[in-house]
């Protein structure tokens, strides 16, 4: 019934940060590999197919980083072969590969992050900065509007102007200036409309998002899993996997609950 995305945006933000930050900060291959694999599996579950493109992309990224680092950096003891009298070392290649994996894992997890924390959830997080939240909301409204206007003005000019009279650069300037004039003219109405709806610059928006017991549970679990960094390295991979699959574990729990519920009826 309830999904992981339905948790409080703050909970989601903290959860994703506890995954993404260690990937990027600790150059720990166990953590990175586990996170990458888990991230790819989660993407596969979300898209309901094997994420071939993501896997290929991650592999290519790792290979390219390994190659580039191997060619550029010559530190390390294990010399593999020589190019132009410079040694290509195993350590440099390995370092590059881990870097590549780190980038791939970060990309996979950031895409999951943006899938979960959509625009309005980030807005909800900004509730104690009401002016900023309103500003972002207004800008998000204006961008598509101005783009559409620009295209339409261009179309009207394309049909009705005799071509060749105005040089292309000047033409673009002319259309841009016309869009600006229009934008200024119309923003007066928007300002009036805001004032007429009782907006004062001190007006405060309130967030309607609640903090539920479930949020506390997820946060507690996330915090508990952070103990992995005090444990020996072998634990890192296992506990990271648990952390990464937390949303899926929650999903399974909810699925089981739903099945039991339907059986009772």
């Amino acid at each position: 019934m309830r999904r992981f995305e339905n948790f409080n945006p703050a909970t989601l933000l903290i959860y994703y940060m506890t995954v993404i930050i260690p990937i990027m900060v600790f150059m720990n291959p166990f953590i990175i590999l586990t996170a990458l694999a888990a991230g790819l599996v989660r993407a596969g579950i979300y898209e309901r197919k094997i994420p071939v493109k993501r896997i290929l992309f991650s592999a290519v990224l790792t290979a390219v980083m390994a190659l580039v680092n191997g060619l550029l950096s010559h530190q390390g003891d294990t010399e593999l072969f020589f190019i132009n009298d410079r040694a290509v070392t195993l350590e440099a290649i390995r370092y590059g590969a881990v870097n590549g994996l780190m980038l791939a894992a970060a990309i996979v997890w950031f895409s999951a992050f943006s899938r979960t924390l959509t625009g309005e959830k980030i807005m909800a997080l900004l509730w104690h900065l009401p002016k900023l939240a309103l500003l972002i909301s207004m800008i998000m409204r204006l961008i598509p509007r101005y783009l559409e206007r620009y295209n339409k003005t261009g179309l009207a000019a394309r049909i009705n102007e005799e071509r060749g009279q105005v040089p292309e650069k000047k033409h673009i300037m002319q259309i841009t200036s016309a869009v600006f004039t229009w934008a200024l003219e119309n923003s007066m109405d928007t300002a009036d409309s805001m004032i007429m709806r009782g907006y004062t610059s001190g007006g405060k928006r309130i967030s309607g998002i609640q903090f539920r017991p479930g949020d506390a549970a997820v946060l507690a679990l996330t915090a508990a899993l952070q103990t992995m960094y005090f444990l020996p390295e072998t634990w890192h991979g296992i506990l990271m996997a648990v952390l990464c699959f937390l949303p899926e574990i929650y999903r399974i729990k909810e699925n089981v609950k739903w099945k039991i519920y339907t059986l009772k009826i």
Partner: peptide, 14 residues
């Protein structure tokens, strides 16, 4: 409450 001519201009949020 006030409603103006141009529907687009009065909308504030996204």
């Amino acid at each position: 409450g006030f409603v103006m001519q141009n529907p687009d201009n009065q909308i504030v949020c996204d």
